[in-house]
Write a protein that binds this DNA or RNA. Structure first.
Lengths: 147, 147
DNA sequence: GGATTTCATTGGGATGTCCAACGATTACCG
DNA sequence: CGGTAATCGTTGGACATCCCAATGAAATCC
């Protein structure tokens, strides 16, 4: 008498595209995190520093909105980045509630290094694919992301 | 006098495949999580329940190894699932250190519902793509995952 | 049969995410 | 105007996740 066939639920879950893309994303994340750690930054710090660099003098509330990050967590990240000399908080003369956050030259330098490192990590991530396939993948992911 | 051109670091980061795949993964994860929440389960609970279903009566240490989950956290997840009546912990007569974890009929039923819901969520995730494109995406992601 | 390993559980620390509240400042509007 | 509402940066705390360590009970190794 054979036992009732169990429901292969884990196999089923792990065959779903959402699971697959999650695994690949985790791999890519860990590669980039390891690369960026060479410059002493973690991924959230890098994201904040990059946003500050891109949006010039910017209020913290703007960073919260642009990065969809929690305001409390941003304070800690900015404290760390500021004490590392990568950015500066200055009072905004036009609105004294706001802090004008600006990247320092050292911050820009770190950012450029991290950009190279992150690109190299992405090279590793995509190394199983040739150029055509990489283009396909990026195109498909872009469509999933934009819509 | 134009200000020095800022380094568009955020734009650069967000153009990397690792960032793109991370966003798509986050979207898929939230879709599946929302779907599965209809059955009162969170994703870690579902993963554990599915593994228990798949591997029949299984010791907790085996689940720890198969799911790469922390043993401490597994205890909490099993407590929740057991008090919800979805699985049962029984002493293993052949090794009295072990707990034989087994899915209940109610657990199997919940699992089947979750499988449907997760499939529908994946349908939503992939809705911008046609069948050919979905196959391409899965094939590309599979190669990135397997190597 | 004594030393080592495995098992389930508990505890604690470090981190990431989210929500609520606060004092200070600005914007709105009657 | 003037008072209410909204926004700003900050702090506190609730949770979940992840890592390491230790426990008593039970099995395995030699």
């Amino acid at each position: 008498m054979t036992p009732p066939e169990p429901f292969r639920a884990l196999e089923h879950i792990q065959s779903l595209p959402s699971w697959l893309v999650g695994r690949v994303a985790a791999h890519g994340r860990s590669l980039v995190a390891a690369a960026v750690a060479e410059e002493g930054l973690k991924l959230p710090h890098l994201a904040v520093l990059a946003a500050v660099s891109e949006y010039g003098p910017v209020a913290q509330a703007d960073l919260v909105r642009r990065l969809s990050i929690d305001a409390k967590d941003l304070v800690g990240l900015l404290n760390h980045l500021e004490s590392a000399g990568l950015l500066v908080r200055a009072p905004d003369p036009r609105d004294r509630r706001k802090n004008a956050v600006t990247v320092t030259p050292q911050g820009t330098h770190t950012l450029r290094r991290c950009a190279e490192l992150a690109e190299r990590a992405n090279e590793d991530l995509l190394s199983p694919l040739d150029d055509t396939e990489r283009g396909q993948l990026i195109a498909l992911l872009t469509r999933l992301h934009q819509t």
